[in-house]
Write a protein that binds this DNA or RNA. Structure first.
Lengths: 194, 194
DNA sequence: TAGGACATGTAATCAGTTACATGATTAA
DNA sequence: TTAATCATGTAACTGATTACATGTCCTA
């Protein structure tokens, strides 16, 4: 096997198939949205299908049409032994684990805070906290669904990590809010202080 | 102005120019590496130059050759009033602040933990902690350099956010390490417990 | 005088997204 | 019977990276 190096997303898709059972591209997408998404992002449908075709060409997965015959019925994928070995080798990846990628549009805007009003900035961060609380709820739901399933032990740890990271994200936002407030000395519009 | 929507990276580059002074593409890259990088990632040289050309075409920046004449001497960029207005409008961006993007290759590997040995997984996370500690040091250096400069108040807040976020990242890793250890019941190779 | 930092760019490639098209199956 | 969900894919585009090419300026 010619060690074709693949993008992490390909390994993520293959990883989705490394858990017991076979599934369709569509199912894989739902799965990605409910777990992978919290620590790695979820690829678009079109990319999942593309990766599955590539993985099949490489012999890392096999597929079979499940709908009897006919045009474009559903196609279920399963990982091969070769695929499992390749995935394990990648996951082990002693040499090069690529860096954590983070793009935080809210902090980017705070960084540009000299262009905005303090009130607007505060609103932006508060909205972010609200969104994050929503995500936190979703992770907890996912965690509840995964609870007790033996085969999901590691995905559960990843979800717990995600839960804690969202909690941390909220704390980080609040601390930033405090920093922002400290920048604007507390106004006292009624009486002018000496 | 025809509200040409630009990718966040273009605004980030323009943002770098929104602080007092003019600078070259090369300087912008150094800057991005020392600040932007910690919460948004730093674009490659080639992309910075490309964005600068685009921003100039849009009238958001102007440039002048600093080396007297001759082939490819350095070119310094400055933001225009129009550019500043456009940037402020984007930063305010009430409607659509895009979601936080996170790709965490270490958590991805833990998620795939059923394919690895517990020891290997532990090493992977410990290495990540070490790398993160290195980054933390870099943020603190950046923070020290920015200290006291009046115009950098908001960038400083972004850096403080980055510092806390790296501290949180380390705590998160340690918690995950504990979760992993709990998965593998403590071995007692000397005497078999009843 | 050699090496490193400064400085700018081109070419090739790829990863990944959005928008669109199509149709089957299931539940209200 | 109609809407939602399941299901798969194509086309066009673009964001972004890597590798390469080129040359200047400064300093040990």
């Amino acid at each position: 096997m010619p060690t074709t190096s693949l993008p992490p997303t390909a390994w993520a898709v293959l990883g989705l198939l490394s858990f017991p059972g076979e599934r369709t591209g569509y199912e894989l997408k739902k799965w990605a949205d409910a777990s992978l998404r919290f620590f790695y992002g979820a690829p678009a449908f079109s990319q999942i299908y593309a990766e599955l075709r590539r993985l099949e060409e490489l012999g890392h997965v096999t597929s079979r049409r499940s709908g009897p015959q006919e045009p474009r019925t559903k196609r279920s994928y399963a990982i091969t032994e070769q695929g499992r070995a390749a995935l394990a080798a990648w996951a082990d990846g002693g040499q090069d684990v690529d860096p954590v990628g983070l793009r935080h549009p809210v902090v980017l805007r705070v960084w540009l805070g000299h262009l905005a009003t303090p009130e607007r900035l505060e609103t932006l961060v508060r909205e972010h906290v609200a969104r994050t609380e929503g995500e936190l709820k979703e992770v907890r739901d996912a965690l509840a669904r995964a609870d007790g399933v033996e085969a999901w032990a590691h995905p559960q740890i990843a979800l717990r990590w995600s839960e804690r990271r969202l909690e941390a994200e909220i704390e980080l936002s609040r601390a930033m809010l405090a920093d922002l407030a400290a920048l604007t000395p507390p106004e006292d519009p009624q009486r002018a202080a000496p």
